[in-house]
Design a protein around this nucleic acid. Structure first.
Length: 421
RNA sequence: GCGGUGGUAGCUCAGGGGUUAGAGCGCCUGACUGUGGCUCAGGAGGUCGUGGGUUCAAAUCCCAUUCGCCGCCCCA
């Protein structure tokens, strides 16, 4: 029986794993520069954390969660996003004290039962930030800035944040009524399933990709005209910060986000050429979530960024990095005294040299062929003569030049020739 | 959940009812017994996604199923 990775999951094979590690390191470096610390939370949580945190009406909760009952009768859910678990940990361990800001970041798999397509998997990976305890527009701006900087650090260019404000709960309610009033007649000929969804969360119709629907909604009311004074000032202040920081952004009133916990400013960054699922990241302010899941009322703002989508964008942009081979040296065994050969290799490894060998002890020709393919800069041939005399030849594989070395200086000589090639 | 499209060697693909299913690349071995890349000569490797059906005969036609890809919905 042959097995395949389950539908919507992917293996990251050796050629790709270095790019992943590099991306994660880049993200961690960014976070450390801004004073964020990493939090790692379990792969699964109490189902209630998500139904409560994300909202009963959201698609994720309604049809995309991997939920099961464990042997103890508990309802368990594989995490479909990173914010609710991070906030749960924040509350559970009292990571923030009153009046203090807590800055967390995470790198995590997420699970959503969806139909896979380009840029959309059932197990995906996200990096994310949570800035907890601050209400200032500068904190919204910092999260947006970090998102943009992250993609810049990866080598992606010409990306702009799309920002919007959902306003306060009251102003959003007023707007919702107005939008629904305007849209209802326009939706009459659409499938009932779609209409029901719109009744539940009218903001959703704004980011529909349906061309005819988009045209019909061109003169729909705009949420930004419904903001109360405080929300408006906050949103304008964020824009002021972004301009001062030279962060490219556009105001896009159609950005509404799919999770119920968002309040105030929301944003996304999109990339071209990575398929229909073009959002690289999405985030915003969620001032009600912490209280919702049992913590003290605390303002917060965050973002989640899709790793697979960032990698797709890197691929199409041609900005993906090329890596040097990992190996320094390939040791070729030309003697029957395998134990002595292995000892020399082991000593080099113990000193920090990266060495590979042919453990099948094939012909010299095969071993040199393998040395060439291994990407190592140097080949070291070890035969009876070398073992007896303690004198070795290092061959530079790029041009075939040979250098002599001794048992005592092998380590230094290897390093010297590697760094020079 | 809905619609479209595809699955043949490790990879990229050809073959679209008729004897032992092919190519390129990759892999292995060798070309005077301890030296790679180039060239040459050999070689290994395939349940033709899976299950059923039609037929004297199925990789090829039909049905189902599964997985991929593209899109919708939605999102990272």
């Amino acid at each position: 029986m042959r097995f395949q990775a389950p539908r919507g999951t992917e293996d990251v094979v050796p050629n790709e794993s270095r790019t992943w590690v590099w991306l994660e390191q880049t993200f961690r470096e960014l976070c450390h520069r801004y004073g964020y610390s990493e939090v790692r939370t379990p792969t699964f949580e109490d189902t209630g954390l998500f139904t409560r945190g994300l909202g009963e009406g959201t698609d994720i909760v309604n049809k995309e969660m991997y939920t099961f009952v464990d042997r103890g009768g508990r309802s368990i859910t594989l995490k479909p996003e990173g914010t609710a678990p991070a906030i749960r940990a924040y509350v559970e361990h009292s990571l923030g004290s009153q009046g203090q800001i807590t800055k967390l970041f995470y790198v995590t798999p997420i699970f959503r039962y969806e139909r896979p397509q380009k840029g959309r998997l059932r197990e995906a990976h996200q990096t994310g930030l949570e800035l907890i305890g601050a209400q200032t527009p500068e904190s919204d701006a910092e999260v947006i800035e970090m998102s943009v900087r992250f993609y810049e650090m990866l080598g992606l260019r010409n990306l702009a944040a799309r920002i919007n404000s959902l306003g306060s709960n009251e102003s959003r309610k007023t707007y919702r009524e107005a939008l629904l009033e305007h849209a209802r007649p326009l939706l009459a000929d659409l499938p009932t399933e779609f209409r029901e969804r719109c009744e539940k969360n009218p903001l959703r119709i704004l980011d529909s990709k349906d061309e005819t629907l988009r045209e019909r909604l061109t003169d729909a009311p705009v949420i930004l005209n419904y903001l109360d004074d405080e929300s408006r000032r906050h949103f304008e202040a964020i824009q002021g910060c972004l301009s001062a920081l030279d962060i490219p952004y556009v105001v896009d009133p159609r950005i509404v986000r799919g999770l119920d916990y968002y309040t105030g400013c929301v944003f996304e960054i999109h990339a071209e050429g990575i398929g229909a699922q073009s959002a690289l990241c999405g985030g915003g302010r969620y001032d009600g979530l912490i209280e919702e899941i049992g913590g003290p009322p605390t303002p917060a703002v965050g973002v989640a960024m899709g790793i697979e989508r960032a990698l797709l964008a890197l691929e199409v942009s041609g900005a993906a990095p090329a890596f040097e081979p990992l190996l320094h040296l390939f040791a070729v065994c030309l003697t029957e005294r395998h134990a002595e050969f292995c000892k020399i290799v082991s000593q080099l490894r113990g000193q920090g040299i990266r060495v590979d060998t042919d453990l099948q002890f094939r012909s010299a020709k095969s071993q040199f062929r393998q040395a060439d393919k291994s990407g190592a800069s140097l080949a070291l041939a070890i035969g009876d003569d070398e073992l007896d005399s303690g004198t070795f030849k290092l061959k530079r594989l790029a041009d075939g030049a040979e250098f002599t070395s001794t048992a005592d200086t092998l380590y230094e000589d290897t390093l010297a020739y590697v760094s020079r090639s």
